[in-house]
């Protein structure tokens, strides 16, 4: 059997004295869609930042196609088709939409043909961005900023898209649009690793879920199972009280 597309083994991380992650293992196969669930402060975003190498970790390994890329940084991951969209304010507020895309295409900026093709593809998918090309990213609406973030990821033709809180602070109709894009991407074969607060949203486009609490994986299984089986949810929910 071939190695999974992405595997993070025993990831550990701390902020000073605060242990945030304590041996978290997450695997994503090619074309699979995986959710990372958990309450606020469970360590989900930290986990993503650690595996993509923008935050130092206290222990663990990251493998892509079975190849160890631990602490090689985001460039190595981009080169292997793994793109991370950070949560919250991930735009460059003073850069224009066009400039933001240009920054995203930095690794292949000299390949004019590829740049043109990527730009065309992205603008075809998000026509609104083409209209706002010269507008600064900071002046876009929240939904448009997230579209720009997706667009910046799509220029890389990702095999695995790591998304941190796609829906945070957005209106339901906007979330709907973004979810459609993500579902579409998944249908075209892109694997997903998504951090979500709300199980209901996650259940719509993920197959498998990890439930993170106090820096550890408390549950791993099919998202639909978690969503539909009240008793299972209860077990996960009350996991803390079991002791």
């Amino acid at each position: 059997m071939s190695a999974p597309l992405f595997e993070a083994q025993d990831i550990a991380a701390s902020y000073g004295k605060l242990r945030v992650l304590d041996g978290v293992t997450v695997r994503v196969d090619a074309g699979e869609s995986v959710a990372l669930l958990g309450t606020n402060g469970a360590g989900k975003s930290t986990f993503l930042r650690c595996v993509t190498g923008v935050q130092p970790m206290a222990g663990g390994r990251v493998l892509i196609d079975g190849e160890d890329v631990t602490s090689e940084g985001p460039q190595a991951l981009l080169a292997r088709g793994v793109v991370h969209i950070p949560g919250g304010h991930c735009t460059f507020p003073a850069l224009s939409v066009g400039e933001s895309l240009r920054v995203a295409m930095w690794p292949f900026r000299k390949d004019t043909a590829r740049v043109a093709a990527a730009e065309e593809r992205v603008f075809a998918r998000f026509p609104i961005l083409a209209e706002r090309r010269t507008q600064s990213a900071g002046s876009l609406s929240g939904g448009q900023q997230q579209m720009l973030a997706l667009a910046r990821a799509l220029v890389h033709d990702p095999r695995l898209l790591i998304i941190d809180e796609l829906s945070l602070g957005l209106a339901p109709t906007v979330i709907e649009q973004l979810v459609e894009v993500v579902v579409d991407l998944h249908a075209s074969g892109v694997a997903l690793l998504v951090v979500e607060q709300r199980l209901a949203t996650a259940a719509r486009f993920t197959d498998r879920a990890y439930f993170l609490e106090r820096g550890k994986v408390q549950f791993e299984g099919a998202t639909s199972e978690l969503h539909n089986r009240g008793d299972l949810v209860r077990a996960v929910f009350l996991g803390g009280t079991a002791s």
């Binding site: 923008v54 991370h84 304010h89 735009t91 507020p93 003073a94 240009r102 920054v103 930095w106």
Partner: peptide
Amino acid sequence: TDLGLALRASSQNPLSASLAGLP
């Protein structure tokens, strides 16, 4: 220039810049 663009991007949002593969 691309270099200037990269510098502006890094100073505005270091996290996003490094995730975009900027050295």
